[in-house]
Design a protein around this nucleic acid. Structure first.
Lengths: 337, 337
DNA sequence: CGATAGGGTGCAAACGTTTGCAGAGCCGCA
DNA sequence: TGCGGCTCTGCAAACGTTTGCACCCTATCG
């Protein structure tokens, strides 16, 4: 391993000069700088991150905690986070909690110990646990708000980047309403899900403005299997359309409906949320609320870096847009009753 | 930040004792050890990774380079790698080359600089470039062999963990043959793909033992879109079945066939490779060669750790198993000609 | 010509940890 | 009582950087 000492010796200067030539070139004479950089390149000098990290107290690494890397939602976010961080000179540690809320605190601690800051995507932990896990770590949350404590509890608010859930579901409901649907089913995610709560609340609010009756189908696992379950409930409840908490669920609904011989969108309309890549690959393609997942990941990184540079970052909400595809259509003509 | 010094002072011992009490407990008296660990816990002491990394020359981190995190294949591998590494006390840096071969060398270097070793999954680089990028870094390859140089070139062989491609495609072809198919199309991946080469070669070898004629449909992008393209070629060529390089392609084929009104498996059988989660979610579900992706990721970590501990790791090939689902069936009765 | 300013460089300390070496205390045995 | 050996602990160096401080040299100005 070649160090600053080797470069210094070979270039006939002191190690301070080598360090400066590479880190702050304007502080050393042009001729020296060129010689040093040339020698460093020739010797294949690679700065030792552990050493500079120790000296400067910053690792130039960030951590990312996700509940499930195999979930296409988080895959997209992770990819975007990685790209943005790298563009800003940061490397990213990835940790997967495997949907286990109890693991989150431990993983956050592990990440925080080796990084300058951590990004926590859609944490499954309860509010208190999450707050506890986050003391002393500079973090940014994705798709989860941590309400400010009453006042001056000393807990600094953790910035959050989320998506405009209320607007998204309002658009979805407006679309269905325009198609003539009057009773639409709501398939919520797990009760502990912050996003699900927001989306359901948004639907309820939106329904008040419209001549639409909401039917709560229950809470389900936010995966394909959960959607399969939803489908039967939807059919039993007599709704003509269903809004799913997310795309994975919506895809499960679609699949189950096909197996039960129900035509989509002829007999039932289905709307998802997130617009994962897969939504375009099924048929009929899924009508869904497009959430800018990559942008969310990038924004989260940006907020974290602002905080790391001493700035103060405010929570952000990203706009969403309903994307109409094949899974939604006019309400069936013949009344069922 | 609380350091060994703080703990030492609070416990009334020297920093050496603190360090030893935590790292090699058997070397310090039981009573002292207990006091130190208690004080350390009370003070919330967290060892500084940069410092120990500097001193010991090991970071206890590994790097993982994948071509595309959004590809479910790599998502699964990444998840498994992360889990295994963490279980062994290692954290993992993830880098995504975005399918860009030219980025790989740079990313490998960046990862190698901050880690003890790196895992390279399905690199897209050519042999020479890859070999060059890997000098001086302890690495393990996944799904890619780097043939040993002629002899004694000093290049240490890079261990590789892969899947038994030849056996997989042989099983697939045997299955189709047993169903009566006599002309089967082969949809290859990119020419630069090592796996694709192996699978195509395996098919050719397997076809020789059987009364089956292979029709090379060409090389395609190993994604859904590539598969869409394949489908038209397959229909035009008159084959009754097609073996795709991977599941993503196979899913594209399925989708395109449906849009063109071709019944699967009634009129055409389709077989994939990898068995990504998605393969079970479409209908008909995809008949495919199940590759133990998670096991592959875990094994790769194991090999890397063996090397890091000074051992010598040999390349491994994992067994595969054909999983028959709905996309393959008996050859159509009526002759087309 | 002398004083001063400022650019360029080197010395050495510091970051927090691990560890070789050596000292201190104790036990047991002769 | 003297001595060897063993256990436990502390001292200090080292890992590779960055950076405050001080030095030297040259150029500029009075």
């Amino acid at each position: 391993m070649v160090t600053v000492h080797d470069v210094a010796r070979a270039a006939g200067v002191s190690i301070s000069t080598v360090s400066r030539a590479l880190a702050s070139p304007e502080r050393v004479a042009a001729v020296t700088r060129d010689r040093v950089t040339r020698v460093a390149a020739e010797l294949g000098y690679r700065p030792n991150h552990a050493a500079s990290g120790l000296r400067m107290g910053r690792t130039h690494a960030v951590g990312l905690l996700v509940p499930d890397l195999e979930n296409p939602y988080f895959a997209t976010v992770t990819k975007a986070v990685q790209a943005r961080a790298r563009a800003e000179g940061y490397e990213v540690f990835v940790a997967d909690s495997d949907e286990d809320a109890d693991m989150e605190a431990e993983l956050i601690a592990a990440l925080a110990a080796r990084t300058d800051g951590v990004l926590v995507a859609s944490p499954r932990s309860g509010e208190a646990e999450l707050r506890a896990a986050l003391v002393g770590v500079t973090a940014v949350l994705a798709s989860r708000e941590l309400p400010a404590t009453p006042s001056g509890t000393g807990e600094p608010e953790v910035p959050c980047v989320s998506v405009d859930d209320a607007d998204g579901v309002a658009q979805a409901l407006g679309h269905l309403s325009a198609l003539g649907h009057r009773t639409v089913g709501v398939a919520a995610g797990p009760a502990s899900s912050w996003s699900s709560e927001r989306r359901v609340a948004g639907l309820v609010a939106a329904a008040e403005h419209r001549d639409v009756q909401l039917v709560q189908l229950g809470t389900f696992q936010p995966y394909f299997a959960g959607g399969v379950q939803v489908a039967d409930h939807a059919l039993a409840s007599g709704v003509t359309a269903v809004v799913a908490f997310n795309d994975l669920m919506a895809l499960g609904i679609l699949d189950r409906l096909r197996h039960r011989g129900v035509d989509v969108p002829g007999e039932m309309s289905v709307v998802g949320f997130d617009d994962v890549q897969l939504a375009t690959l099924v048929s009929p393609a899924l009508t869904t609320v497009h959430a800018p997942l990559a942008r969310l990941g990038r924004r989260a990184v940006d907020l974290l870096l602002v905080r790391l540079r001493g700035g103060t970052a405010a929570s952000t909400q990203l706009p969403v847009e309903l994307t109409i595809r094949g899974s939604s259509g006019p309400v069936p003509a013949g009344p069922v009753s």
